[in-house]
Amino acid sequence: MTVKIYANAFDPWQEIQSYQNTLIGGHFGATNVFIGTMRDFNDGDDVKSMTLEHYPGMTEKKLADILIAAGQQWQIIDALIVHRVGTIMPNEPIVLIAVWTAHRGDAFDACRYVIEALKSTAPFWKKEVLTTAQERWVTKNTDGYNAH
């Protein structure tokens, strides 16, 4: 299980292909993938960019702990988290989670667990720059669903 933090843009599909080919081979039956991208809106405002900060060392450890916890609950063959830091523009990938298992149920459930744990416990801090040039720190994450 692997955690990567990048300060520059990454191609999530290339990350998956490379990891899958070099580390896992063909020894899996299911792959579940989550890719989170930066939206150009939040809390009713248009967002121009975002700066994502982290605590080096602590962040990677927390993400690794999340993968270990997932592996204790589901039969995971392997898993990958790739996360951006630094300045991020709309439509750029922020996070990639890939989980490889023998069967789809474990893959879906483990992937969902990993993103929810990451969003609620990983030490990342977001500052948005609005199209009005105003800056603000994001104080809470969404619950992952569109407000009704």
Rank of each mutant, 00 (worst) to 15 (best):
Tyr55Trp: 15
Pro56Gly: 12
Gly57Cys: 05
Met58Ala: 14
Thr59Lys: 01
Thr59Ala: 10
Lys61Trp: 07
Lys62Tyr: 13
Leu63Cys: 01
Leu63Met: 11
Ala64Lys: 08
Asp65Ile: 05
Leu67Val: 12
Ile68Asn: 08
Ala69Leu: 04
Ala69Thr: 14
Ala70Cys: 10
Ala70Gly: 08
Gly71Arg: 01
Gly71Lys: 01
Gln73Thr: 15
Gln73Leu: 05
Gln73Val: 05
Gln73Gly: 02
Gln73Pro: 09
Gln75Arg: 14
Gln75Asp: 15
Gln75Val: 02
Ile76Tyr: 06
Ile76Leu: 06
Ile77Asp: 13
Ile77Gln: 13
Asp78His: 04
Asp78Phe: 08
Ala79Val: 04
Ala79Phe: 04
Leu80His: 04
Ile81Met: 08
Ile81Trp: 02
Val82Glu: 15
Val82Leu: 14
Val85Cys: 11
Val85His: 03
Gly86Ile: 07
Thr87Arg: 13
Thr87Ser: 11
Met89Thr: 05
Met89Ala: 07
Pro90Val: 07
Pro90Lys: 06
Asn91Ile: 04
Asn91Met: 05
Asn91Gly: 04
Asn91Trp: 10
Glu92Lys: 00
Glu92Cys: 00
Glu92Thr: 02
Glu92Asp: 07
Pro93Thr: 00
Pro93Tyr: 04
Ala98Pro: 03
Val99Glu: 05
Val99Gly: 05
Trp100Cys: 03
Trp100His: 09
Thr101Ile: 07
Thr101Arg: 01
Thr101Leu: 04
Ala102Met: 08
His103Arg: 14
His103Gln: 13
His103Cys: 10
Arg104Asn: 08
Asp106Arg: 01
Phe108Cys: 04
Phe108Tyr: 11
Phe108Lys: 06
Asp109Arg: 09
Ala110Cys: 01
Ala110Tyr: 02
Arg112Asn: 13
Arg112Gln: 14
Arg112Asp: 11
Arg112Pro: 10
Tyr113Glu: 13
Tyr113Cys: 08
Val114Thr: 14
Ile115Thr: 03
Ile115Lys: 03
Glu116Phe: 08
Glu116His: 14
Glu116Tyr: 04
Lys119Tyr: 06
Thr121Gly: 01
Ala122Glu: 00
Ala122Gln: 02
Ala122Tyr: 01
Ala122Arg: 03
Phe124Met: 01
Phe124Glu: 00
Trp125Pro: 01
Trp125Thr: 08
Lys126Phe: 04
Glu128Arg: 06
Glu128Met: 09
Val129Trp: 10
Thr131His: 15
Thr131Ser: 14
Thr132Phe: 02
Thr132Asp: 15
Ala133Trp: 07
Ala133Pro: 02
Gln134Asn: 09
Gln134Asp: 08
Gln134Trp: 01
Glu135Trp: 00
Glu135Tyr: 00
Arg136Lys: 07
Trp137Arg: 00
Val138Asn: 09
Val138Thr: 04
Thr139Ala: 06
Thr139Tyr: 11
Thr139Val: 12
Asn141Lys: 07
Thr142Leu: 12
Asp143Leu: 08
Asp143Ser: 06
Gly144Leu: 02
Gly144Ala: 05
Tyr145Phe: 07
Asn146Lys: 11
Asn146Tyr: 12
Asn146Cys: 12
His148Phe: 09
